[in-house]
């Protein structure tokens, strides 16, 4: 045996191992990716909601992508309250103007940002929502004020198709 042989042997084995590992990884990926949302879920349509029956102070809950969406027509008091809060007081500072483009309408995902329960309407210390699971209090803009939840309730993509119809998604 010459002196060079062991080196070449090492190289051969390392390459084989490395290439084998690449293959195992490539095979593992489809098995993992199959659990991700599939093409039909990704393509799921938007939901259109007729809000003509809502009066100020009322909330309806609709289903979008399997989650509840709160649509609330807010009273003037609620709007005033939401807009007067100072940013420093907020755990997750967001202006009400950014959350509700039309101040009368608040459209948000009705999912507590703590662990995903659905908060209750018109409850809590801030006249907004209260999550019964672990006691998070949200204000009239759906912003977190007290309790374990870290973030404000999420605002989905939505638009007014006409005065009476909101399209979510």
């Amino acid at each position: 045996m010459s002196d060079k042989k062991p080196e070449r042997r090492e190289f051969l084995f390392t390459t084989t191992y490395a290439l084998g590992a690449v293959g195992v990884g490539a095979v593992a990926w489809p098995m993992i990716d199959q659990m991700n949302p599939d093409a039909s879920v990704k393509a799921l349509a938007s939901t259109e909601v007729d809000v003509s029956s809502l009066t100020p102070g009322k909330t309806i809950t609709v289903l979008w992508r399997g989650k509840p969406v709160f649509i609330r027509k807010r009273t003037q008091d609620e709007i005033a309250e939401a807009r007067s809060v100072k940013m420093e007081e907020l755990k997750h500072p967001e202006k009400d103007e950014d959350r509700a483009k039309d101040p009368e309408w608040l459209v948000m995902l009705g999912v507590c940002t703590h662990l995903g329960c659905v908060p209750l309407n018109d409850r809590g210390d801030y006249n907004g929502w209260f999550c019964p699971c672990h006691g998070s209090h949200y204000d009239t803009s759906g912003r977190i004020r007290k309790g374990p939840a870290p973030l404000n309730m999420e605002i989905p993509k939505y638009e007014f198709v006409n005065a009476n119809t909101i399209k979510i998604g």
Binding site: R9, L12, F13, T15, T16, L19, G20, G23, A26
Partner: peptide, 16 residues
Amino acid sequence: VYLIILTILVYLSMKR
């Protein structure tokens, strides 16, 4: 193509 390359490498390793 991948399998053929790997097969050749494994064959050489086996010979060694």
